[in-house]
């Protein structure tokens, strides 16, 4: 199946003063693809993601979405952070609608999208609750739902499950795959957890140490949901782990 290119990163460079964090980084992401980005700790993964989301401007090079330079006004960008970022002062319903409200005025449309998303995430019964009344995993579900509800051109996730226990993590990993399949959005997911990367991604990008660039890309043709004990799964995981270790 020929997918078209959604995101094109061309010779991306980022320096903070003399410190070169990202240098000469180029790659492509296809429409509707689920990509994981892994790399050694501190190699600049978060900086990388921040530039994709246009929170940071590149020193050189460009990030293009649908052929145009990425920007929050032009494109629908959604970012999920490591810390739960559901607004505590909004109800679940209001949180879900927040991303949409940035660019849409049509109340009916917003309501429709929000309802759909809440149903998909199973959050309907919590619609009038506040995030602090709910568990952390539910809170992150709100965040995921809010992100997908925006109909994003690009959905960026920065180690969103890093602070959670294993059970919650497994659960949310399955959830994000489920929603992704349903909505068919382009996702870039950063993690330092190789198993998680292999569990989720269609393609894994391995970054080098600073100054970071794409060292290798690994395509994972396994179907979802994946079995972590599958020998092919294990092989890929070990391979990637080795790749990272030697840097």
């Amino acid at each position: 199946m020929e997918r078209r290119v959604k995101v094109k990163v061309e010779k991306l460079c980022k320096s903070f003063g003399d410190l070169k964090v990202i240098e000469d980084c180029s790659f492509q992401i296809y429409d509707g693809e689920f990509v994981c980005v892994v790399g050694p700790t501190g190699c600049g993964k978060t900086t990388f993601l921040n530039m994709l989301s246009s929170l940071l401007k590149p020193t050189k090079g460009a990030v293009l979405i649908d052929g145009e330079e990425a920007g929050p006004k032009k494109h629908n960008l959604s970012f999920i952070f490591q810390e739960p970022s559901a607004f505590p002062w909004l109800t679940v319903e209001e949180n879900m609608a927040y991303g949409l409200r940035a660019k849409h005025k049509d109340k009916a449309y917003i309501k429709e999208q929000t309802e759909h998303m809440m149903e998909l995430m199973g959050l309907g019964k919590y619609r009038r609750s506040y995030p602090k009344e709910l568990s952390t995993s539910t809170e992150q579900k709100i965040v995921i739902g809010r992100a997908f509800a925006m109909n994003p051109d690009l959905l960026l996730m920065d180690e969103p499950y890093g602070q959670m226990d294993i059970k919650t993590r497994f659960y949310l990993e399955d959830e994000v795959i489920r929603i992704w399949k349903e909505c068919q959005k382009t996702v870039v997911f950063i993690t330092h957890n190789i198993e998680e990367a292999v569990y989720l991604a269609e393609r894994v990008l391995i970054l080098t140490n600073k100054p970071a660039k794409v060292k290798e890309e690994i395509i994972i043709p396994l179907p979802h949901p994946r079995n972590v004990e599958d020998p092919e799964f294990v092989r890929i995981r070990n391979y990637i782990t080795d790749q990272i270790r030697w840097w």
């Binding site: 929170l55 929050p72 960008l77 959604s78 970012f79 952070f81 810390e83 970022s85 607004f87 002062w89």
Partner: peptide, 27 residues
């Protein structure tokens, strides 16, 4: 105000004024 909230609002495409109203003030 937690920077995370502000960053999220930025990526959504909210203007500084709207972020002030919808994130800064409630926070």
């Amino acid at each position: 105000t937690n920077q995370v909230y502000i960053n999220f609002a930025k990526t959504c495409g909210y203007s500084n004024w709207r972020i002030f109203r919808t994130v800064g003030i409630p926070s």
